[in-house]
Design a protein around this nucleic acid. Structure first.
Lengths: 207, 207, 207, 207
DNA sequence: CATGAATGAGCCTTCATTCAT
DNA sequence: TATGAATGAAGGCTCATTCAT
């Protein structure tokens, strides 16, 4: 009884917050991060400026929330993808499949504009960035797992440690994605990424 | 008499422009790109604000001029470096030497801050960027020359075209440099770049 | 039954009001008056913002209530102090003892920050101030009583009326307290006040 | 030749600055210090907001400039007044004359509202305040000079040091002025100040 | 060529207050 | 009585740009 009415209020608040969040994401994707003002966000969401600050401590807080939330789910998608592959598939093939999946997600789900924001924010090195660079750690683990399997099975031969090797692959996928961002739309992420990894994999594959 | 003064004026004008240019570059390197205001630039150059707009149409115009000029010289440095290597050295070794050189230049001459600007500007995709991405074409040619030599001599075996292969290497060095920018100072560019290219080169080297 | 709940509600309401009142006083003492927002008060009190406006018409209304209540008790403390002194003590000594007591209360109980608020509010001349300046009238009476005794006993000789004389002493103690506020912590209120009053008392003491 | 045109520009700038300064002072006198926004000042001065920040680094900077300038001249007025008194007049009379002068200046030239600001700012203890409290040092010296003369001539007898005594008198005049501020217009500053100082002077005068 | 005063839209943020529940 | 989401005016401040001299 006493819980009911406040609940409705809470729901409304969450709705508003969500609307702000979504509109902000939309605008960020269109115009970048510095270029989107709080004014623009609240206008898009159809609420007052004060309301913004009811729900977010600052514009920066929104950015961080946006990024954290945004990249948060991707890990699981990637992990699920790898887990769904046949257990006994070659590590090389698993990696290439993962690369293809990543390319699909970046291209289809996330989009170039949003990735541009992510890369810009990384360059700015603002607070909360760690979560996004740390986001990599999820990806790291996925790569590491496959690589370890490949090493154990004798598929890969390398003088580098597993950790080092993992880092190089993550660097590579990030680098190609960056290139895609700045060359978009004249750059086929999937095709280029696969070709690139074929070179890398050849480099670490035993003859 | 009437010809003389305008000439002198022109010279003085160039001096002023150069001073603005240099001070701006200095400040860009220290604090990034958005963070440097026109005010800061003119103060550093010791001229008035109006003078700035005598020489540059806008702040953006200065940025573009800066970038174009800035990266312009680097090509030659790289080319000179490769040309100075023994003609008959292995293509792999030439490439690794070039990578080391690039790392040295980025780390020592250019610096992390300036590269952050460059990458940020690339992401923004502003006008004039083409000249900077086109800057890559200089680098492209250098890479392509060495790679071609490696292919002709049978050192490299790849199903990719020379052009494709070149692109992959340039992407790789850019990706690692980006990583260096966002992880600075916890990232040894030279070491990581060399290790990374050893993998790549192994990938394209015939067994 | 129907009488019971409203009663209980009233009690609860008073509790909430008291809590708001106390928390506000605490915060006012810590950070001054403008610097404490309604948000800060309701957060400290653990109630919602709406609740604040159930109990107080406005922030200003709270301030006035706070001041009135706050200084209300001090009179009695001072009066009790003077009453506790030996009936036949010299008026000069009684006054010096009162000054010392006032200094102790300001320094120890009330504190510099709160007095700053009081003085600031007096300067602003907001509504309700009269009650606080009228607070002085309690102090007036205390001073007047002692002074009258001193005159009657021939200890003080002055051409001023008792009322005028009283005012001058109150002005003096207020002036020194103000000085203490603005020089805090580089000002020993008790020491300076006693020295100051020794001059004043010498001025009104018969030779 | 080359100095001429810039001079005219400089004059215009100074004019604008002066206008801002004066309008601000006017508004401060009317409504206090926090209550006057930069918007209000620029509107009164008929210039744009940007112009304000061309001439003053911040609102605080203006306040400080205002106070410094404001009280700056008063010292000299007081000093001139005392210097104009007959060299051989009694120190007591000189002091009373000075008190009367101060009361006249506060009442006639400066006005109650502006003094309220001064006292409020002192309470706030903002930066630059030292100059205003330090303003006292000019007044200090004037008081000290007269007091020293009175001591040397045997007119004053006190166990306090000259410095201490000076401080007490300055405190007293400040205290009375404060009282005037908060009781205005029901308080005759000149009359009260003179009466007050007669007590104080009696207190430090040998019989 | 050089100046620098002036502009004004725009920025992020704060906060006392209202009102439907 | 209590809630808390919503408001919106106001705050101080920044900055690229213009223009008369």
């Amino acid at each position: 009884m006493e819980n009911d009415k406040p609940a409705r209020k809470k729901v409304k608040g969450e709705t508003t917050k969500r609307k702000l969040f979504d509109c902000a994401g939309q605008l960020f994707g269109e115009s970048g991060f510095d270029a989107v003002s709080v004014d623009a966000i609240v206008e898009a969401a159809g609420v007052s400026k004060g309301t913004f600050y009811v729900h977010f401590e600052s514009k920066d807080a929104l950015i961080i929330a946006f990024l954290t939330d945004y990249v948060g789910g991707v890990d699981e998608v990637y992990k699920a993808h790898v887990d769904a592959l046949p257990e006994d598939a070659a590590a090389s093939d698993k990696l290439l499949s993962l690369i293809a999946k990543i390319a699909d997600v970046l291209t289809g789900t996330i989009g170039c504009k949003k990735m541009q924001i992510v890369y810009k924010v990384l360059l700015a090195g603002s607070v909360g960035t760690e979560m996004v660079k740390g986001y990599g750690r999820g990806l790291y683990q996925i790569f590491a797992n496959v690589l370890e399997q490949g090493i154990n099975r004798g598929e890969f031969k390398t003088s580098l440690s597993l950790d080092e090797l993992t880092k190089h692959l993550v660097i590579a996928i990030r680098g190609i994605s960056y290139e895609w961002c700045i060359r978009h739309p004249d750059f086929d992420l999937k095709e280029q990424a696969l070709a690139h990894f074929q070179i890398l994999l050849a480099g670490i594959r035993g003859r």
